[in-house]
Design a protein around this nucleic acid. Structure first.
Lengths: 157, 157
DNA sequence: CTATAACCTACTAAATTGGTCAACTTTAAA
DNA sequence: TTTAAAGTTGACCAATTTAGTAGGTTATAG
């Protein structure tokens, strides 16, 4: 099982999208600025997210990405699966041929664990995260950092 | 968070120890033969398990390893922690300084996930695994493969 | 037409995994 | 008291993955 920055970045970026993408598409440059994730790396991640129909893109000036569904219908597990291939904890990927074609001694344990993790992450939607108080606090901090003063009124019109 | 073959091998090896270590110490060569794990790699893993007081060793001919506690008191989470450093899903390792000294947008999510995984794996002891039917079935298969015939009566005296 | 931003491909540096190998030290059976 | 079994240590290595660069090409709003 893998859960590295790749999956974390993807979820963070999608949450940023859910927070800022209500009215217009959000550019990767904006996400990069707010979340401290390299732009080129974001491009790679969003290519996968797009292939998995989690976001849709708008090209050209003023373009960017939108969630392809309502935030209530996008779950954390999907996002991680999209960029990470799988959240499986077994060595065999669930095919049960871990020891010379037969199941290994601990196969069932890892299956149970995978099930646990997957059901936990499948139960959390982007909208649920948006509603959390800590998320709103942190998001406000990030907005303040990136729009220090005047620009705000201009872009908020 | 990492859960790779390293942690899986360690749990598998410890379970083998719980299954075969009732009367005498078990050599790494035996475990290697039964579980298809390289002997040299097992040596590395058991060095860590020993440092974490999960096993104790008996040197010299007829030596090997024993569980340092009863199987009811050794939990899967401990084993993985011992070889893998941590089963933490956050990027910051729990220190909450993920974004320029402050918490990142998804910090709390990864904390919750870590808590889920850890409590799941902390609730499973080696003895519980030994008692599982599938484990007994697989273990019987492995014993048959490694002691094809006669030797059995000799070593079982 | 020009600036913007998605999209695409190739490359790379660093880290991690999953080992191997050789050279020990310690212990205990014969 | 040999001597062989077994643990211990550290150096090394190939393959893979991660995280990120670089340099382009489309597409489109203004």
């Amino acid at each position: 099982m893998r859960l590295t920055t790749k999956g974390r970045y993807a979820v963070t970026a999608m949450l940023d999208l859910a927070l800022h993408g209500n009215d217009r598409p959000v550019s990767l440059a904006d996400i990069s600025g707010r979340q401290d994730i390299s732009l080129s790396y974001l491009e790679q991640l969003f290519a996968k997210l797009r292939r998995n129909n989690l976001v849709s893109s708008v090209r050209g000036p003023g373009g960017g990405y939108r969630l392809s569904r309502d935030g209530h219908e996008i779950f954390v597990a999907e996002i991680i699966d999209a960029v990470n291939e799988t959240v499986d904890a077994t060595g065999c990927g669930g095919t049960a041929d871990c020891q010379q074609g037969e199941v290994c001694l601990t196969h069932h344990l890892w299956c149970d664990l995978s099930e646990q993790i997957h059901s936990f992450l499948s139960g959390i939607s982007l909208s649920q995260l948006v509603e959390r108080r800590e998320v709103q606090t942190i998001s406000a901090r990030q907005n303040a950092r990136n729009q220090p003063n005047t620009e705000l009124s201009l872009s908020e019109v």
